[in-house]
Amino acid sequence: MTQPTPRTSTLPAPDLGRSSDAERSARAASTGGCPVLSFEGPSTPYIDYQSIDVLLSLQQPRSDAPAELPFYVMGQVKELLFKLIYEELRRIRAELDEDRIGAAVWSLRRLRRVVELLTGTWDVLGTLAPTEFNAFRDHLGDASGLQSYMYRMVEYALGNKQPALAAPHDGVPAVRAQVEQALRAPSVYDAAVALLARQGAEIDPGTLLRDPAGPRPDCPTVERAWAEVYRELSPADPLFQLAEGLVDLAEGMSRWRALHLLTVERTIGSKPGTGGSSGVAWLRRVSEHRFFPELWTARCLL
């Protein structure tokens, strides 16, 4: 089948302003439905909208080892996804604070897909043979994913408040301020438990009034409240769907951690990590943690 011949069409210099449906329809009519291939000025609208030139200039591997580029790019992809996850968590928390349960459930649905995409980065990194990784590992120096401030903010937004793990950022004031803000803000789970109380669940007042910056102890009244949601409500009820949406998210994060552990063990065995940790032994302990703990233990009451 003969492909249509693109028309040569020149647009003015890229304009990041808005375009309407009517303008897009008029443009498609003027080009016969073919894409515009020529633009005035030093850039294109897509480069400017996505900052593509800046983005693609940020890959700076330290060695000539071929496997370092996929390692490097996947690390940056993870950081972008951490940022997206954190911003989505903030919005979900706001929706819960406003008792917009349906909106929060819908947002959790999308967030789980983002976490699945994040988990998929380990599928790429798992293709690095030990010899390929060792060819550039020394160039990492003391750099470690443990120092990722966006991931730390994600953990804090999920409710895993470990203040000591904010310490790597003490010497970077702008970063430390962001991490500190995430540490001190209520988590998504804090917002969900507060919502349960507003919906009539009998929650221990000490749990509702606790300092959100500290570790969150397990609470029997929260466990019973989630068990009642499962026992008394149908799967079509928004609170039931919220419980399952939160468990979906927690499970997704646990899968990410588990694959992290397996990928590291496959690549370096039991050697110490670059950031001073014991490596696999440290990750194994971390992978045993569960976000939203009472949602998991409530199953034992059903």
Rank of each mutant, 00 (worst) to 15 (best):
A258D: 13
A213C: 10
R285G: 12
A28S: 15
W296M: 14
P238S: 10
L259T: 11
V73R: 01
Y46V: 13
A29I: 09
Q60D: 11
T297P: 07
R210H: 15
V222E: 09
D15A: 07
G32C: 00
E40L: 09
E223L: 05
L96V: 03
D211H: 10
A243P: 01
L84K: 06
Y230G: 04
Y230T: 04
A177M: 11
E23H: 04
L209T: 13
A225K: 02
Q50T: 14
Q76E: 03
W296F: 15
V286C: 10
E23Y: 09
A135I: 06
S254D: 15
E79L: 07
S187R: 01
L209V: 00
A103C: 06
Y86A: 05
S144G: 10
H289K: 15
M153D: 00
A227K: 05
Y49E: 06
D97L: 11
V77S: 02
S148W: 02
W226R: 03
G41F: 00
E228T: 15
L56D: 13
G159A: 01
A164K: 11
G273F: 06
G200V: 02
R210D: 14
L16D: 10
S19L: 14
L56C: 11
Y151S: 01
C219D: 15
D64Q: 09
S277I: 10
L261I: 05
D248Y: 07
G126L: 06
Y86H: 12
C300T: 07
D123M: 10
P42T: 03
S63R: 10
T127K: 14
Q50A: 14
C300S: 06
Q60R: 13
D48W: 01
P205W: 01
P212E: 05
A174V: 10
L55C: 07
R257F: 08
P238H: 07
K161W: 01
P235D: 10
R137V: 04
G120C: 07
D64K: 11
I203Y: 00
S107N: 06
Q178P: 02
V193T: 01
A227P: 04
L249R: 01
V193C: 00
R255S: 06
T267G: 00
R299H: 11
V54G: 08
G276F: 12
A135H: 05
R90Y: 03
M1V: 13
P6N: 05
P45N: 03
V73Y: 01
A194E: 14
P61N: 00
A166E: 03
E79R: 11
C34E: 11
D170L: 15
L302M: 12
L146E: 09
A135D: 13
Q76M: 04
I52M: 09
V172F: 08
A298N: 00
V114E: 04
C34D: 07
D237Q: 13
S270I: 09
P212N: 08
L302P: 03
V77G: 00
L195N: 03
D53I: 06
R62I: 07
F136S: 00
L108R: 05
A104W: 00
Y230W: 12
L233T: 07
E288L: 12
N134D: 15
D248G: 07
A191S: 12
